[in-house]
Design a protein around this nucleic acid. Structure first.
Lengths: 211, 211
DNA sequence: CACTACATACCAACCAGTCCGTATGTCCAA
DNA sequence: TTGGACATACGGACTGGTTGGTATGTAGTG
């Protein structure tokens, strides 16, 4: 008989931290940041408050961590579209829309929603740090989207001039707004319809020999 | 000389109720619904909690009242665009965009934001009643927008077919998303750029002899 | 042993909501 | 015209529970 019990309390700080952040992300997606209490986070992560405040100085600190976690997850998700420079920029953009449409199909986690959008809406006015974190992630998203548009603009003739940066913000806002209003609806069908329209709009910017 | 003192304790329930609702609207716009306490509402309205709960059964009840107040204000604001059936539908749509652009110019009340968007984001997942109220107001907005698009579609030849309803939701989501992301930015310039792009997009749907 | 990772117990402030007292306006009868 | 009955409007103290955060203890680890 070994002295160690079968499942010794797994003393794993990195894993514990990850559990706390992921629990926070889940709660923010369900009920928002303000309505989420530290106690709820702790019980969702099967931990106590003492442990929580050992890993995070404040509730705001884990809000920042949740925003960053979400940003990294999003970057990884979208990487399939924009990370391959060999891919045709228009194909990149199509993959990009496919990924967004795909994220409306996971109904198990409730409606399609976004931690960064949630935090921007709730906390931009009261927490400069959270606001800055959201700004950063939104700018990352936009920068990558603008890069695809710019590359497509260089490769293909355009039907009318457009600013890739402005267009990227347009798409970002449409995406965030779709998730927001999508929460009030029973199906994600409207979100998908918006993405189809946006895709058609982007396609319409370029003249391709194929079509 | 009237018997009434110059400033009698203003026993005016309708006015009191209005003050409570408007204070709530202001606080929701600044810091969101969850982060707004009944005590804050009371002190903003210079009232006490006893009075508050005389007029409203719960915090949720004044949330509903705030949503409705906002919806009515919005309807009144947009009425200048869509209430005149004699107006050319494309002119209606242009006025519509002018009104939205105009509401980004009031910087005195902080960034351009929306009570219904706030409540949708924060409370759709936890309060069916608030969610229903938001759904209703968003559908009103979309219905009126779709009506303008439909009228324009009947009057002018179109460059490509489109569904007025779907397009209206597209515009609504863009508008909400613009206000959301606009909170993270220092100027409303991005919101205005989005509205300009949306206006150009709508214009591009129709063939007008003028252009 | 020193240090980290976590638990327990606790705090003052705050939360939504209740209770009750009081001031005010309304209606009706004398 | 007076005055009392009654409902409404509001003030203010209070409650049980929750909030974010702290102080302290203890067990595992190098």
């Amino acid at each position: 008989m070994s002295k160690k019990p079968a499942t010794p309390p797994p003393r794993n700080p990195a894993e514990t931290r990850r559990r706390l952040v992921e629990a926070t992300v889940g709660l923010i997606l369900k009920q928002g940041y303000s309505a989420t209490s530290v106690d709820q986070i702790c019980s969702a992560a099967s931990l106590t408050k003492g442990s929580f405040f050992h890993h995070f100085d404040s509730k705001e600190a884990i809000g920042l961590a949740a925003a960053d976690w979400w940003g990294e997850m999003g970057t990884a998700l979208y990487a399939a579209a924009w990370a391959d420079p060999a891919l045709d920029p228009l194909d990149q953009l199509h993959r990009f829309f496919d990924i967004m449409i795909g994220s409306t199909e996971r109904v198990d986690t409730g409606p399609c929603t976004c931690v960064v959008g949630m935090l921007s809406q709730e906390m931009s006015g009261t927490s400069p740090d959270l606001r800055a974190a959201c700004t950063r992630h939104l700018e990352d998203w936009t920068r990558n989207t603008a890069a695809m548009l710019r590359a497509a603009k260089e490769k293909y003739p355009v039907t009318r001039d457009f600013d890739p940066e402005e267009t990227a913000w347009f798409l970002n806002c449409l995406w965030q707004g779709s998730m927001l209003i999508g929460k009030t609806r029973n199906t994600p069908e409207m979100i998908r319809a918006n993405l189809r329209q946006a895709r058609a709009w982007v396609d319409g910017l370029f003249i391709t020999t194929a079509s």
